[in-house]
Amino acid sequence: MINRGSEKISCEEVEDLVYRYDSFDLAAAVAMLDPVFSERVCVYVSLKEGGPLGLERIAPPWSPPGWLSISTPSG
């Protein structure tokens, strides 16, 4: 679990969302220290085909119904 402010974020839920993309072989959501909210979501991924992939390319689909914006990885 990642503790962002007073919210608990499930690493497994974030990883499940990452796996909706066909370009990723592996994904691991972990906590990253944040000076304001204690922790933030950090996702490490392994690409299937290689090459660069920026957060801006995958950020728009990170808003499915019921998804908390604080659970979204930030750049």
Rank of each mutant, 00 (worst) to 15 (best):
V43N: 09
V45D: 04
P73T: 10
S69Y: 08
R4V: 15
M1Y: 00
L55S: 06
E56G: 10
F37G: 00
G54K: 13
F24T: 11
P64L: 04
A59K: 08
I70V: 15
S38W: 01
I58H: 00
L53I: 09
K48M: 07
K8W: 07
V18R: 01
D25Y: 00
S63P: 04
Y21I: 03
I2T: 12
G54R: 13
N3C: 13
A27E: 05
L47F: 01
S71D: 14
Y21D: 09
L68T: 12
S10H: 03
I70M: 08
D22S: 03
V14R: 01
I70K: 06
E7Q: 08
R4I: 14
P64S: 00
V30D: 13
G51Q: 07
P61W: 00
R40Q: 09
V36M: 07
L47G: 09
L47S: 11
G66M: 04
S71F: 09
A27G: 12
I9Q: 01
N3W: 08
S10L: 00
A28G: 15
E15Y: 02
S10F: 04
V43W: 11
P60R: 02
G66C: 02
P52I: 13
L68F: 07
S46E: 14
L26D: 15
P73F: 03
P52V: 14
F37E: 13
S69C: 04
E7Y: 03
P52Y: 11
S6D: 15
I2G: 07
G75L: 10
R20A: 10
K48F: 05
S6K: 13
E15H: 05
M32H: 13
I2L: 02
V36C: 04
L33D: 15
L17D: 06
R4W: 11
T72I: 02
L53Y: 08
A59N: 11
R57S: 15
Y19F: 01
R57K: 13
T72F: 02
V30G: 08
S63C: 06
K48Q: 09
S71G: 15
L33N: 14
L26E: 15
A29E: 10
A27D: 06
R40A: 06
L68H: 12
Y19A: 01
P73M: 06
A31D: 10
V36Q: 06
L17A: 07
L55Y: 09
